[in-house]
């Protein structure tokens, strides 16, 4: 462990303040009793109640949740398949191109992704709504999922699969009985990551949504343009809490699996 110095302590404090002060302020003001956002009027939880009674917010939240659940599930399945092909498929024609295309949305500006999807849906005459938001979210969440899962697959000992084949499994049951249980933590992490990404996306959802399909970030954004209300603060605080829990759980799961795997590998030597 490194020694404690005032320099270290100061820099880490400044860093965290820079990153988290706005969020902390938001959470604090969500408990503000006053209707004016910037004037402290005493502690109250009433805006949480107001936000939860706001039908527009609730229906947007329900939309968001549906989109996020479907996105996370489909993106994880597709991401797993892509990771298996990329890591295990060996050399096949177009492998580099396929790999590049799977990972491209990682670096693609969201505006471009959103715009191109909008053009696609319009030209194919697909009615826009929750369905199109889901499709759009799946395309970009899938590449994050496949990155997470392929990182685990790369370090997965291939001889385990061979042992399963040797002991009587065919390719499919070897995957199901040996590979899958061992990469499960990374699959869960990929699901949570996709879920979180879908939950807080504004840009792509705005491009691909249609009438009646408003997600929570879109609702908040449109509300804020008319002025920030304490209700928004409360709602945002709840979102922050949800995302934080998701990210923490995902990282805990993958970290615990990682340490267990390392311990197992150390013991193997």
């Amino acid at each position: 462990m490194r020694r404690f110095t005032w320099f270290n302590a100061t820099s880490i404090t400044l860093g965290f303040v820079f990153l988290y002060l706005p969020i902390i302020l938001l959470v604090i003001y969500s408990f503000n009793d006053s209707r004016l956002v910037t004037v402290w009027g005493g502690f109250s939880g009433r805006w949480y109640g107001e936000a939860l009674r706001n039908d527009a917010f609730l229906s947007a939240a329900w939309n968001t949740l549906q989109v996020a659940l479907v996105t996370a599930t489909v993106a994880t399945v597709l991401g797993t398949l892509a990771a298996i092909v990329l890591v295990r498929g060996g050399r096949f024609l177009g492998r580099t191109l396929f790999g590049g295309m799977v990972y491209a949305p990682l670096v693609m500006p969201e505006v471009i992704t959103g715009l191109s999807l909008l053009l696609l849906f319009v030209s194919l005459d697909v009615p826009r709504g929750l369905m199109t938001i889901m499709l759009a979210h799946i395309t970009f969440a899938m590449c994050y999922a496949s990155v997470v899962i392929s990182a685990r697959l790369v370090s997965f000992d291939r001889s385990l699969e061979e042992a399963a084949l040797d002991l009587g499994c065919n390719q499919f049951s070897a995957f199901l009985r040996v590979t899958l249980p061992n990469i499960l933590p990374s699959i869960i992490a990929a699901w949570l990551l996709s879920f979180t990404l879908s939950l807080d996306d504004l840009v792509i959802a705005s491009f691909t949504s249609g009438p009646g399909a408003t997600t929570l970030p879109m609702r908040i954004y449109s509300q804020v343009r008319l002025g920030v209300t304490p209700e928004i603060n409360a709602l945002s605080s709840m979102l922050v809490g949800l995302v934080t829990v998701g990210v923490i759980v995902a990282s805990l799961i993958s970290k615990r699996a990682e340490t267990r795997r390392l311990a197992a590998e150390r013991a193997a030597r």
Binding site: S159, A164, L165, V178
Partner: peptide
């Protein structure tokens, strides 16, 4: 003939024990 249909078994160099299964389940796998 695929590996799973051959009447031979192999003991692997790094053992390739299934980390998610107990000793008994490893032995019972086949």
């Amino acid at each position: 003939t695929p590996p799973n249909r051959r009447p031979v078994n192999m003991m692997f160099q790094a053992y390739a024990l299934f980390p998610h299964l107990s000793v008994a389940d490893n032995i019972a796998f086949g």
